[in-house]
Design a protein around this nucleic acid. Structure first.
Lengths: 351, 351
DNA sequence: TTGAAAGCGCTAACAC
DNA sequence: GTGTTAGCGCTTTCAA
């Protein structure tokens, strides 16, 4: 029972004894209108519980003050949950809402996700692209002229504003750090979106951030003259665990494993634990992306930390500028940094 | 350059040489309309890149196929990220989108969050309420008759459909389990929303789930005849860490610490690590809520796992039923269960 | 200072 | 089988 329908501006007008136009003016506070009318209308609106219909406002205005976020993974991921949060926070500061869709690393899902956002008339889009090369759905025309900001990965064209992190140098630095500590056999566990199972030969890598990590690792290996074992695998619990087994069972078993993300790190931890290997002693590990638990573990996990919050913040700022008419595109690269904790054993004879 | 504006049904009509109504019928596939017309219109729509304006559709229809999710915390939290994900997934299955707002455990923020959702014409709301008692903004009238489903916690009235977990019995079970393993001094670390700093006396607890955990722990203590130390604290890194210090430094230092959530668990891990205490040997720990990292650690953390995905799934299902007219409210309680891993040492003499 | 009316894009009742 | 028209709630000319 009780009043079931939402109040419209017409209801307020009627209750206040004025016209809808006057109500609109009073509430928005523009145009020539007397102080008393404004106060009266506002009081009436308040008392009957009027709430503007955002749909109608947006339709009339032709903009929704909403940005769409198309992200590849869910909040389960230690990187994307922080990114999502920082994007929401910054958007709110600038008066925007955020619509979220997950693409699951699949370009066709990405396509429909973007389509959905556009149907909902978002003013602009922040995208973690599923593919470096497939971006035919990102033309200005297909986007109805709505701006996009690409984050985390680059495309093979320099047409969009892009915010990424410098993973290549950081990956190299991490390898060199381990080499300095006396590690001569290095293992690499790389999660590659889109592949099934695992492989030791390098597969097609559809996204630049992973490619950068691989390149950086490789540079580090080259420079350090260590031997290395590489396993590329699907980001799935059972697959990544057998990938770790493979790494550990290889002829030149690595003393340190570098993982390309937190899921892979978890796999290493689990398998190492299962084999009775103590991290930071029997087996060392370095992972991309920091997280509260990686810091709290004993020993703490040495990680390559990326400035996720800053990345999200900048992405929103740039997008909103573009929404407001700025057409210059930028390529922004934020530095990643090695956080040394206790998960890399010191193997050097030199005490 | 290029075509900047989104196409309307009018554009399609013009290009196809028919009326807007015909286009609408052709696209929606209803009413009397010839096959050729349908095909022709669809082809034209496709070719000019027509995309329906979801705003206009929603306005016309009076419903948005959107549900609002007002959650207290962000995705950083191991419980709420999984809940959010499962809600999004289930909503999608049922043809609904999800709008997310965070209330930060603050009723006044919750109020405006709900207001925003209603302005955006959500069809219903899933709410993790910030307070057990303050729900004057949840009357059917204030909600324009839109249904709500409450999750994770209960209110002090039985007016809404509620989906919670049976934390009390699970908490008790956990304590008894530790007691069986020979623990005689038990520590409890409880995060309480809304308080600042920490206290050893029980403060006002604004939410039922935490109260249930406290009650369950207390019952376990009573039954086991062990001594216990309790610290209630703010959910903040530095505060929770000093809470752990306090626990560890208390006269009857606990051999096991029970934590009310993952943040508290992290604090225990960190402080224990700092003191050189090995979890599962020198110090035992049991926490509420499971997570991938709690499982992967060595030793694995014994946790009270709640069926988060199921909870989210059910919440959406119930809400959608309510949206579709079902007015019966239910109180659903899902069982939580103890997952025994290696973080509780066996202190019994009996080998 | 205020009101009437048009129109944002869409659908559905009603004509033809 | 298809077109005309009205109207969802709002803002904003244009008139008064």
């Amino acid at each position: 029972m009780s009043n079931n329908k939402s109040k419209t501006i017409g209801d307020v007008a009627e209750a206040a004894g004025v016209s809808p136009a006057t109500v609109s003016r009073a509430l928005a506070g523009y145009g020539r209108i007397s102080k008393e009318t404004v106060e009266h209308v506002r009081a009436v609106a308040e008392s009957i519980g009027y709430r503007p219909n955002a749909l109608a406002v947006a339709m009339r205005a032709g903009k929704t003050k909403t940005i769409g976020l198309v992200i590849i993974s869910d909040f389960t991921n230690a990187f994307f949950d922080r990114a999502t949060k920082s994007i929401i926070d910054r958007a709110q500061e600038l008066g925007f809402r955020v619509l979220i869709q997950h693409s699951d690393e699949d370009v066709s899902v990405e396509r429909v996700a973007i389509d959905t956002m556009l149907q909902h008339q978002v003013d602009g889009i922040i995208l973690v692209p599923a593919s470096t090369t497939k971006h035919s759905h990102l033309t200005s025309k297909k986007l109805n002229g709505k701006p996009v900001v690409i984050i985390d990965r680059k495309l093979d064209v320099r047409r969009y504003t892009t915010v990424t992190t410098g993973d290549e140098v950081a990956a190299k630095e991490a390898v060199l750090y381990a080499a300095e500590k006396g590690h001569k056999n290095l293992g690499f566990l790389i999660a590659v979106p889109g592949i099934t199972g695992l492989s030791t030969g390098q597969p097609e890598i559809p996204i630049t951030s992973v490619q950068e990590r691989v390149d950086g690792f490789a540079q580090g290996v080259k420079r350090s003259k260590a031997t290395s074992v590489w396993v590329y695998c699907e980001d799935k619990e059972d697959v990544s665990e057998s990938a770790v087994e493979k790494l550990l069972d290889s002829p030149k078993a690595p003393t340190v494993i570098f993982t390309s993300n937190n899921d892979m790190l978890l796999a290493v931890l689990k398998v190492a634990g299962g084999r009775g290997l103590t991290v930071g002693q029997d087996l060392s590990v370095v992972s991309f992306d920091d997280s509260p638990w990686a810091a709290a573990m004993v020993p703490g996990i040495t990680v390559i930390a990326r400035p996720v919050e800053e990345l999200g913040h900048i992405a929103v700022t740039e997008l909103v500028e573009a929404i407001e008419g700025n057409t210059k595109t930028k390529e922004i690269v934020l530095p990643a940094s090695l956080i040394k904790r206790g998960s890399v054993a010191n193997l050097s004879k030199a005490k």
